[in-house]
């Protein structure tokens, strides 16, 4: 009996520092910030939020953030699935393939933005090809707009999606797709009916990571976007750093948190439809 009691105390003692740290440095400040957004001049007020929702500018920025994040998540899923499937099933040099896949995560934002300038710029490679092949008369505006931002997001977060999917796909036994094939399923059908449903939990994890990443990314919209393609994160920066309006900045941040949580929950619900066994 004594031993059991001791063990419990030791356990609590070990986790106490961690819990304390998170409480003091994350939970309490977060709670404080949440409270502060509901105050104006010391008393309870919804003005911070009302003024946001009133602003046409904010509504556009909000819509854009959500729209681009969802779009990027969708693109990452579309591109990530075949890539992860290939690496999981067919690749001889799995380690090297994985390294290539996650490589973008290690480049700095400034270098990435410059590289995109070289590729998508007015005089960039893509435009040179488009005009050179006679597809367009003049160079197209491929940069500093929602297109380039989406491209930047996808490049940045595709590795997350691939890694999430890879983890789940590796756990799917190969004989399942073989069984499907022996029963008459083409590779595509086997993928859609067997691999895809069983990968859904990885897809959800990846989607949540990508969506959250896109919603909160700052440097990519900053360097690849324009003033008329602002997103919530650049808006928070403007309020906080340029105007030092902490109340408004916090309100925008709260909106970001709520949206991210809502969308993540939605993804989880959807996944359960596709695969009843999904966690």
């Amino acid at each position: 009996m004594k031993k059991r009691g001791m063990g419990r105390y030791i356990f609590l003692a070990l986790i106490a520092p961690g819990v304390l740290f998170i409480t003091v440095f994350m939970l309490i400040p977060l709670f404080w910030v949440i409270l502060s957004t509901f105050q104006e001049g010391g008393s309870f007020s919804l003005n911070n939020y009302i003024s946001l929702l009133d602003s046409v500018y904010f509504r556009q920025v909000f819509g854009r953030s959500v729209r681009l994040s969802l779009l990027s998540t969708g693109l990452c899923a579309l591109l990530g699935f075949p890539a992860a499937y290939y690496i999981s099933r067919y690749s001889r040099h799995k380690g090297m393939m994985m390294a290539l896949a996650i490589f973008p995560m290690f480049t700095s934002p400034v270098i990435r933005s410059f590289s995109w300038m070289v590729i998508l710029g007015r005089k960039g490679i893509v435009n040179q090809a488009l005009v050179g092949l006679g597809l367009f008369a003049r160079p197209q505006s491929l940069l500093y707009n929602e297109f380039s931002m989406t491209v930047g997001f996808v490049q940045l977060f595709l590795p997350q999606m691939i890694l999430s999917l890879l983890g789940v796909m590796d756990a799917i036994p190969t004989d399942l797709t073989e069984a499907a094939g022996s029963l008459g399923a083409t590779r595509l059908v086997a993928f859609l009916r067997i691999v895809f449903p069983l990968s859904v939990s990885g897809l959800v994890t990846g989607a949540v990571l990508v969506f959250t990443g896109c919603m909160t990314a700052y440097t990519t919209p900053q360097l690849l976007g324009a003033t008329d393609t602002q997103v919530l994160s650049t808006m928070v920066y403007q309020y906080a750093m340029s105007l030092r309006d902490w109340a408004q900045a916090s309100a925008v941040a709260m909106v970001m948190i709520v949206v991210t949580l809502a969308v993540s929950t939605l993804f989880n619900r959807l996944s359960r439809r596709i695969n009843p066994l999904a966690a």
Partner: peptide, 12 residues
């Protein structure tokens, strides 16, 4: 028809 040692039933 192929019967696998591990049965290979579709879990979902």
């Amino acid at each position: 028809g192929f019967v696998f040692q591990s049965y290979a039933l579709f879990p979902h």
